[in-house]
Nucleic acid binder design. Structure first.
Length: 274
DNA sequence: AAACGCGCCTGCGGGC
DNA sequence: TGCCCGCAGGCGCGTT
């Protein structure tokens, strides 16, 4: 579920609350996540350690500890992280509870269990499988038009598929890929190698703007996204095409169409996107 | 080798 | 009311 703005919203909510706190114990009630949860691993690396930072790479959260261990956490489609000032009863589908000093808690909930948590030692987390093959961060200086052009020129697949390919650029899921393409005026089915430099630049800027704007609004809450305090995001009010099949385009009035690309719902305004 | 389809899960809303 | 179906924001694997 959560894409870059939602994951970053969670990171920003957790960092000031958990930084420099000592993790006292871990309770695992469900190990059948996307990857089986290695409970002993978690305990061995993290118990009694002080958390020194929380970073984000794409849609992954990376918790760093005073022994240089790293805990990688992915929210999948339905994952949530809840912060509580003191010991609190678990909501349904809570799989892991981290308890810090003075009873502060972090609850990991994930009804669909597409998320996962794993641990790495000091010397190998940056080279771990999930992170190693990721492309550039869209809100960093490495996301250049030239870089995007180079990737697009060697592919004939639909541009939307490439935009959601995290080996090229990370953090854009179905919602923001659809929105970025609308704002750039580019049809999601266009072959990658048909985009010229002007269009590529427009797409890059649109992606950045959509992500920034969504981040500013605390993410998009369609059904269940909540930040660490249980608050929803507000970007859904600014969605222009996503989920609006059959409704009229806010810009040109044409009827928004729904099609399927790479198995995902795709929304397009036939008037605005070419 | 790129790129697609599918499976992993539960929950929800719509149609009958 | 209740059942069944399709659909949901992600990722990785196997196949072609």
């Amino acid at each position: 579920m959560p894409e870059l703005p939602e994951v970053e919203t969670i990171r920003r909510g957790l960092l000031p609350r958990l930084k420099n706190k000592i993790l006292q114990h871990i309770v695992v009630t469900e190990t059948r996540l996307r990857k089986p949860l290695q409970e002993q691993d978690l305990r061995r690396h993290l118990q009694g350690r002080r958390m020194i930072d929380i970073r984000r790479r794409g849609k992954y959260l990376i918790f760093l500890w005073d022994n240089n261990a790293a805990m990688l956490l992915h929210l999948g489609m339905s994952g949530r992280l809840g912060y509580y000032r003191r010991q609190t009863d678990a909501e349904p589908h809570t799989h892991v509870i981290f308890t810090f000093q003075r009873g502060e808690q972090l609850h990991f909930r994930d009804p669909r269990r597409f998320g996962f948590i794993c641990c790495y030692r000091a010397d190998d987390w940056q080279q771990c499988r999930p992170l190693k093959q990721l492309g550039v961060e869209p809100l960093s200086r490495f996301f250049r038009t030239k870089y995007l052009m180079q990737h697009l020129q060697k592919s004939k697949r639909p541009i939307k598929n490439a935009l959601m390919d995290n080996r090229i650029v990370v953090g854009l899921g179905n919602i923001y890929a659809n929105e970025a393409l609308f704002h750039a005026g580019i049809h999601p089915q266009r072959a990658c190698d048909s985009l010229n430099e002007v269009e590529t630049e427009r797409l890059r800027l649109s992606a950045i703007q959509v992500l920034r704007r969504a981040l500013h609004q605390g993410g998009t809450t369609l059904n269940d996204f909540r930040d660490t305090q249980g608050e929803p995001g507000f970007f859904q009010a600014e969605l222009t095409v996503y989920g609006r099949a059959g409704e009229s385009c806010r810009r040109c009035g044409a009827k928004i169409e729904r099609l399927v690309l790479a198995g995902r719902s795709t929304f397009v305004c036939p008037g605005c996107q070419r």
